[in-house]
Design a binder for these strands. Structure first.
Lengths: 110, 110
DNA sequence: TTCTTTTATCGTATATTTACGATATACAAT
DNA sequence: ATTGTATATCGTAAATATACGATAAAAGAA
């Protein structure tokens, strides 16, 4: 964009929008679910179940790492990812606060 | 992108990512909160409190309308927006399902 | 050592998003 | 009728996101 204004908002707001952004692509939602579902960590199995190239999946994984929702460790030639449960419950809390903050004013007008 | 693959995912996944996308920009979170907080509908007051041009705010409002999270009516020269409570509780439900679906497998590995 | 496997990163193309100013439209007020 | 106000839309520029193939790096197997 001509100029990025995202940093002109409160931290409370940007932490929410950043988390929302992390799951704003269906591939990333699918990756999170897959990682959670296969309780042991998984790696390139994700590539098999997604309709995306390996490099693209790797890119999405990087985004999820950046948002701190997953953790990754190297295991031989393979990479192992799993849910960062601490960050995830914080995530849930932030969304809960957002929803209850909105719902506190529930009055219909138009 | 070279090719958009977003429609190759389940509807359950895309409805979540679409909603997340709606609040993936801080301006849109701020707009939702402002509309909820001023229980009566508001219009261009949003422009005053955001660090964005009127046309940009209008664009973000359009996005929120597209996601069905707000409703808009015209009132004279002014436009009046408010939360779409039905859609909003559906939104909350979808996120709740997502979180509990992930949390169901809570096992730490790496 | 050499070959294979796995995954991250680089380079690149294209699509989408974000942002603004200018303009159009529609109503209100004078 | 003219002027002002509020807001949506258009056109456009620039940034970011998405996707892929090619390549690099690093470990395991032969």
């Amino acid at each position: 964009m001509a100029q990025n204004k995202k940093d002109q908002f409160d931290q409370e707001i940007t932490s929410l929008s950043d988390l929302a952004n992390a799951i704003s692509h269906p591939a990333r939602v699918a990756i999170l679910r897959k990682i959670a579902e296969r309780q042991g960590c998984i790696c390139g199995e994700i590539v098999e179940v997604l309709p995306l190239a390996q490099s693209t999946v790797s890119q999405h994984l990087k985004e999820l790492l950046k948002a701190n929702l997953i953790k990754g460790t190297v295991d031989g030639t393979k990479s192992c990812y799993c849910i960062n449960w601490d960050a995830f419950s914080a995530f849930e809390k932030i969304f809960g606060t957002f929803f209850s903050g909105i719902a506190a004013h529930n009055i219909s007008c138009c």
